[in-house]
Simulated scan of single mutants.
Amino acid sequence: MSSAKYHQIKDHILTQIRSGQWQEFQRVPSENQLAQQFAVSRMTARRALSELTDAGILTRTQGLGSFVASFKSQSSLLEIRNIADEVRERNHSYSCAPVTLESIDAVAPIAIALGVEPGEQVYHSVLVHFENDAPLQVEERFVNPELAPNYLQQDFHTLTPHEYLSQVAPLTEARHTVEAITPNQQMCTWLNLYNEEPCLQVIRRTWSQRGIVSFARLVSPGSKYRLGGHLTFTKRS
């Protein structure tokens, strides 16, 4: 019963957003309010909010609550680089192992993230990137077929998704969400982790001039990866 209710909560929130009843940056009901409304435990309500936050549909602020995320593009403060180039710049060897390459029906959170209708076909890939034959990052990506029609035909042993998408739909803007997570069992297997080492997760949506190109989740062991950036500020006269 709790599983069905959990899906009902997610569907309710997504319906409110799609219909325009809840606008971007609007606060959504709290865990307690949702638990009372759907007659479930706070844990069930928290799971629904957490998964929508992981998908970039909501944002959460400690002490303030959950809010509808902005679905408009915004400038990125993080430089987006090709992971293969990063590894080779360290004079290390790079390799990649594709795990999944498929076309799927877009469930509501993915449809919203890509700006398509629920049920439309989108491309889905899971790849593991290696540095010196050690797993460095798991990349799960959903791609808009209209903007990258030959995505599934690429050989990602030799070409990264970033390289291919930069060729067919040059990046103009991006939106990031960065957080520390505890990896699940499948993620630990892919990353060859033997304990619950914290991982760095980046949720990223990218735009080209024609629209939203992809929605990706990048997960790396906290001990092996870090993010950096460079900001230039214009001095006011």
Score class of each variant (00 low, 15 high):
residue 27 R to A: 12
residue 62 Q to L: 14
residue 112 I to R: 12
residue 196 E to H: 15
residue 33 Q to K: 12
residue 184 N to A: 06
residue 212 I to E: 00
residue 149 P to I: 07
residue 135 P to W: 02
residue 165 L to I: 04
residue 166 S to T: 09
residue 77 L to Y: 13
residue 80 I to Y: 01
residue 158 T to I: 09
residue 143 V to S: 06
residue 118 P to Y: 10
residue 23 Q to T: 05
residue 193 L to A: 11
residue 198 P to K: 12
residue 50 S to E: 14
residue 53 T to R: 13
residue 189 T to W: 09
residue 14 L to E: 04
residue 29 P to L: 08
residue 82 N to M: 05
residue 161 P to H: 04
residue 138 V to Y: 02
residue 88 R to S: 10
residue 7 H to M: 11
residue 104 I to Q: 13
residue 78 L to Q: 11
residue 181 I to Q: 11
residue 141 R to C: 09
residue 226 R to E: 11
residue 149 P to L: 09
residue 47 R to Y: 14
residue 32 N to K: 10
residue 30 S to Q: 03
residue 69 A to G: 01
residue 20 G to Q: 00
residue 22 W to H: 00
residue 204 R to M: 03
residue 35 A to W: 08
residue 158 T to K: 09
residue 35 A to T: 04
residue 139 E to C: 04
residue 3 S to A: 11
residue 167 Q to V: 07
residue 181 I to D: 01
residue 98 P to R: 06
residue 171 L to H: 03
residue 28 V to Y: 02
residue 19 S to F: 00
residue 80 I to C: 02
residue 204 R to H: 00
residue 129 H to M: 02
residue 30 S to E: 04
residue 123 Y to Q: 08
residue 201 Q to M: 14
residue 71 F to T: 02
residue 191 L to E: 15
residue 205 R to N: 07
residue 116 V to Q: 03
residue 109 P to S: 08
residue 88 R to I: 11
residue 231 L to Q: 11
residue 1 M to S: 13
